[in-house]
């Protein structure tokens, strides 16, 4: 699989750009969090494309962003559960 570059992305329409980035990010996230991969990828795709490209080149920054997303998601779910039981 050839690396995803900024120029490769620039040739695609905006929605397709996010799909292309998601296709690269998803497998990495799936290895870390199989059940949450789709949701976490969706959250990360709201980040600027330039930052996402950087994360693909730097697995450490991608990993820390994924952990941040998991924390946000869990806090959100805990809040929802608390509201339901209240």
């Amino acid at each position: 699989q050839e690396p995803l570059t900024a120029s490769l992305l620039a040739g695609a329409p905006p929605q397709e750009q996010k799909q292309m980035l998601g296709e690269r990010i998803y497998p990495v996230i799936h290895e870390m969090h199989p059940t949450l991969a789709g949701k976490i990828t969706g959250m990360l795709l709201e980040i600027d494309n330039s930052e996402l490209l950087h994360m693909l080149e730097s697995p450490e920054s991608l990993h820390s962003k994924v952990e941040e997303a998991v924390a946000v998601l869990q806090a959100h779910q805990a809040k929802e559960n608390a509201q339901k039981s209240a």
Partner: peptide, 21 residues
């Protein structure tokens, strides 16, 4: 610092992982 990530973001559906119907 508050995270900018949105827990209500739309879920991503990967084409390459799509189940055949």
């Amino acid at each position: 610092r508050k995270s900018t990530l949105n827990p209500n973001a739309k879920e991503f559906n990967p084409r390459s992982y799509a189940q055949p119907k």
